[in-house]
Amino acid sequence: MSDTHSGHESSGHQSSTALSPLADPGLPPHVYRRADTEPRAAKKAERQVAILFALSAVSTVAFVASFVGIEKDAFIFIPLFGSTQAQQLALGMTLALSLFLIGAGAVHWAKTLMPDHEVIQDRHELRSSDEDRQGVIEVFREGAEAAGLGRRSLIKRTLLGSMGLVTLTPILLLRDLGPLPGKQLETTNWEAGRRLVTDPDGKPLKASDIQVGAVAHILPEMPEGSELTLNDMVKDPVILVRLRPEDFNLPADRKDWVHEGIIAFSKICSHMGCAVGLYEQQTHHLLCPCHQSTFDVETGAQVIFGPAARPLPQLAITVDSEGYLIAKQGFTEPVGPSFWERSS
């Protein structure tokens, strides 16, 4: 290695040092470690390294013992951490020690016993020489010439054309990743006459089941034999709130969407689709925990705080002949987050 030299001997002091107080004095003189000069210190360091490695081995044995010896479902209580699976804890601690001690041993070895003379190596410019660059251009030119790229333009064009075309095939192949959206984002299972049932018990509700100030989590009642899938659960959930009828301050055309102070909104946040799961009883606010959009129940779930841009869609409700709450009609707008094709 011609370009390597050991720093401290060769760096020397530049002759200019005496003249210029700011010139590079070269590497500072080497400081020897105790283990470099005292054989006893070196012997001691060697022992320390060996002990670290040996302790690692002991820890690995303890790992094996924990694996076979501790019951899977034994729990132990550790202050601060609570109740923990004893076996996982033992496996983790012993493995951590085994690994750490190998590392500590190796580093200690390197620091105390391996040579710590700094070495100087020269850097070389990365740029290739002008001849090399010229040579490359030459080779390319000759290659292109030999292949006749310049002369045989018919080949060149058909090659480029066919390569261009063949790259389109993946796009086609990926077409069946999913169906087109169609009207899926705009429809739910809610329709006129559909009963409101509780989530998750599926019980129909009468107005009298809900106290003033209470909320209920609601799903549409499905016909016998069909069940709500997770895809329905992204659109159908509704939250019911009962206030005193005089508390409302709704747009005129929505006054009769409310039944005896019971009002129903889509529970899917109009921002990014989380479940608007929190209700503040004193303020009559619905709150989405994801980004804290806050909707005011009295004014028809208008946004009063947070990043949501639209009120929660309201579901018009009434009661059927038996007195159970039902939807008067489906939602009049898409529920959930916005999308490009959404028209309002």
Partner: peptide, 30 residues
């Protein structure tokens, strides 16, 4: 001092750097 745009000052890969880096992997893993 002693370090310029034209040189590299440090420890050779073998053995010092290898031992330190290898050991350090185990420390991180641990």
């Amino acid at each position: 001092p002693g370090r310029t745009e034209k040189n590299v000052v440090g420890f050779p890969l073998l053995p010092v750097y290898m031992a330190k880096a290898g050991g350090f992997f185990f420390i991180v893993f641990g």
